[in-house]
Amino acid sequence: MPDPDPPARPASPEPESRADTLPASEEPMLPARRRLRLGRILRLAATGLVLACAAAAAAFVWSYYVTAPWTRDGQVRVQVASVAPQVSGQIVELRVTDNQTVRKGDLLYRIDPFDFEVAIASAEAEMKNREADLQVKRTQAQRREQLTTLSTSIEEKQQFEGTAKIAEAALDSAKAQLAQARINLERTQVRSPVNGRVTNLLLRTGDYATKGTVNVAVIDTDSFWIDGYFEETKMAHVRVGDRAEAVLMGFGDIVRGTVESITLGISTANAAPSTQGLPSVNPVYTWVRLAQRVPVRIRIDHVPEGVTLVAGMTCTVSLGEAGARGRDWLLVAWNRLRGGGAAAR
């Protein structure tokens, strides 16, 4: 501090010089010296006070940054419905484009239905065949049943009855086949299972869709949530039901939410079995240890206008009100001051 010093210096030696120049009379010297000592004590006290405030402020900032439940490591997450066809075949009609909004039940694409129509026709024919067969077998069995043992044997009767039952079972089987064939034809129309957006669509009319292989991803727009990865040192202050605020990178507005749940486990590298099935334990430095991060799931309650949530976006998540700790602290101090003033009055 070069500026205030030069003008300050002549000010402070003044009383001393005055005291030195007046050694003869003792009466003015004593108060001057006393004033000088008082001034020095006051100046030391002021310095000490400021330093004490600084120490308290430093402690506060430290606790604020180390234990306050906030993290810069938050991410927007979403559930994706991976749609795979239940039957194989060539795609004859693609009804969606990339990033198209779809409702639950909307048609995504159609697989060539010819084979499945043939299967239905064939199953229907088979069923008619079995029905006719059953009718014949039943009539035969009934006729044998009415005859006496003079013209037929009990064994023959049993045989015909059994044949009729077999024909009945065959008809049931044919009916089941027909139901399956009809469902399969329905399944050539692949529909969206959720409300959402088709994403990263890499399909073309004419592509072959294989049964069970995922080929369309639909982002479920009803399922957005935020994962905040909190350091374990802050977990003591994270509680289910806490209010949460997230600021997306690049957006000024606050996305409000609530802590829905806390993940109960993260993977441990030390648990992986290695040679002879023994755990492979990593050596760590005793002095420097990194805090693990625990995912905390935040339900989104309110998204401000103009903010488009995109899964994977980074955000800063803080629990509790904005600056609530600091403001509470100030409020408490202010109330105490006012309360003290009122009591004194």
Binding site: M1, P4, D5, P7, A8, A11, S12, R40, L42, R43, L44, A46, T47, V50, L51, C53, A54, A57, A58, F60, V61, Y64, G323, G326, R327, W329, L330
Partner: peptide
């Protein structure tokens, strides 16, 4: 205002004030 008249060690006090100011900004924003 010739601040050094009021405190014993101006640089030290300024350092302390700086810490207080940082804490205040952290609290308020």
């Amino acid at each position: 205002i010739r601040f050094s008249r009021y405190v014993a060690n101006p640089p030290l006090v300024e350092a302390g004030l700086y810490i207080c100011l940082v804490a205040l900004l952290v609290v308020l924003f």
